[in-house]
Design a binder for these strands. Sequence first.
DNA 1: GTCTATACCGAGATAGAC
DNA 2: GTCTATCTCGGTATAGAC
Lengths: 189, 189
Amino acid sequence: MGIGKPHLGKRTRLIETGMMLAYRNGFRETSLADIAQAAHVPVGNVYYYFKTKEELGEAVVERRLAQFREFREEIDRLSSPKERLFAFVESIQGKREQLARGGCPLGGLCSELQKEGGALAKKSAALFTEPMGWFEEQFRAAGHEEDARELSAHLFCAYQGMAAVAHAANDPDLVVMEVKRLKDWIGTL
Amino acid sequence: MGIGKPHLGKRTRLIETGMMLAYRNGFRETSLADIAQAAHVPVGNVYYYFKTKEELGEAVVERRLAQFREFREEIDRLSSPKERLFAFVESIQGKREQLARGGCPLGGLCSELQKEGGALAKKSAALFTEPMGWFEEQFRAAGHEEDARELSAHLFCAYQGMAAVAHAANDPDLVVMEVKRLKDWIGTL
DNA sequence: GTCTATACCGAGATAGAC
DNA sequence: GTCTATCTCGGTATAGAC
């Protein structure tokens, strides 16, 4: 529970703690006081690093995007696009417990901030468009120039759907079932 | 904008207005003052009908469930289970504009209240389990006793996924694409 | 049953000492 | 750069007149 990795800079600690708490309880329901306390930073000091709560929110979104990009770079080393898509889907299965407990880290944040309006809503859209864009590249590279967009949308919808339902039902097995389907589907392409 | 159907009782008006505003802006972000104002009920009077905001939230969930049941009863008149599933999927397509603008009325509410904890979280789970249960019945009646659960989960995941992504991307065409897929899928069963 | 006034609390945000 | 004390506002909820 929020030891807050004291070796990191305070700014980084605030972002990481904020990301964690926003994932667990939602961004709007977590107060700056909650974040500051868990990160071992005095409340008033938060405003030295972020002018507003919204600004901290943007940093959290950036951090999530950075996490996705790290993962993507790792997976991009695989030789074929089909292997890459396979690896992504397999990674979903590996995170099934987390997905069932707290939903999709990207999807939950995005759908929550979407309603918030303002700069945050705009920024949070990238949490969806970026992964979908990457999917699209893979399908295109796999020879599906025509319907790359549709295929990527389908894959991403399936991902978001299984995460949302597995979370609501608190059932990791649901992820397993849907992932199996996706693997078969990718195999037939 | 919230004329609040003055012919209805105040309690009903509060519930319907609350449901509408919760759908548009989220339940937590809408204050009791917002709801009361839009429903043309004085703020203090809300507490005559509902002891707490959470209690109003429960009523909103009940109302959504009632809406689903109405729709289900209507569709249950169709003769074959496959026709019923088809009709459901077609109704999704008919609501594509709404889905792109505000997401799924069931899914949005459920995923938001899930994090809230307490009695609301428990009650809101029915927003997912009830439709899925109905799907399962249909698949079973269509002769898929073995995998009725898996099939219903798949259909519901697809539904929730397309709604979430279409909402984030604000793109109704995404619903059309995914619905086409689902129709083909049901046809092959 | 209905409505007004208000208590109360927690949130985001600021001032200013160190 | 760091932290304490505090301001302000908006939200839920209550008291009590009519």
